[in-house]
Amino acid sequence: MGERIFCKINNVDYDVVVNHNETLLHLLRNKLGLTGTNEGCGSGDCGACTVIVNGKAVNSCLYLAVDIDGKEVLTIEGLADGEKLHPLQEAFIEEGAVQCGFCTPGVLMSAKALLDEKSHPSEEEIRKGIAGHLCRCTGYIKIVKGISSAAEKIK
């Protein structure tokens, strides 16, 4: 069943028609062409689909598109400021926290939500903050380093 919704994604107003059985992930990737958000498991286990809805990190594969009516969504496409990378993105490059990059957009969104909530998380808090992500390449240590070094820079 189709329904018209209004929302803000990466600070752009959208007026779109979605189906009731459609996930936010599907809307982003298949209708809006925002393919930076990835689909891994489709069931909440891997974190590849993580986006921020009204300030909170959520799995877009388990979030209905109709439910973002009236809300604000931030995806990886909205993280950089034009050509200028976000400090988290820079830190990930510097620390070598990106290899194949499949998990990266999701991890960055969780990291962003974490730092927005707490500007200087402990290593333990960072680990808890990204526990909802699977990365088959980096071994996580570099990701944790990337997030703490970004936290230093954002100061």
Partner: peptide, 9 residues
Amino acid sequence: VGSVQIRNV
């Protein structure tokens, strides 16, 4: 429970 993303919803 789960992860931050799960606990948020």
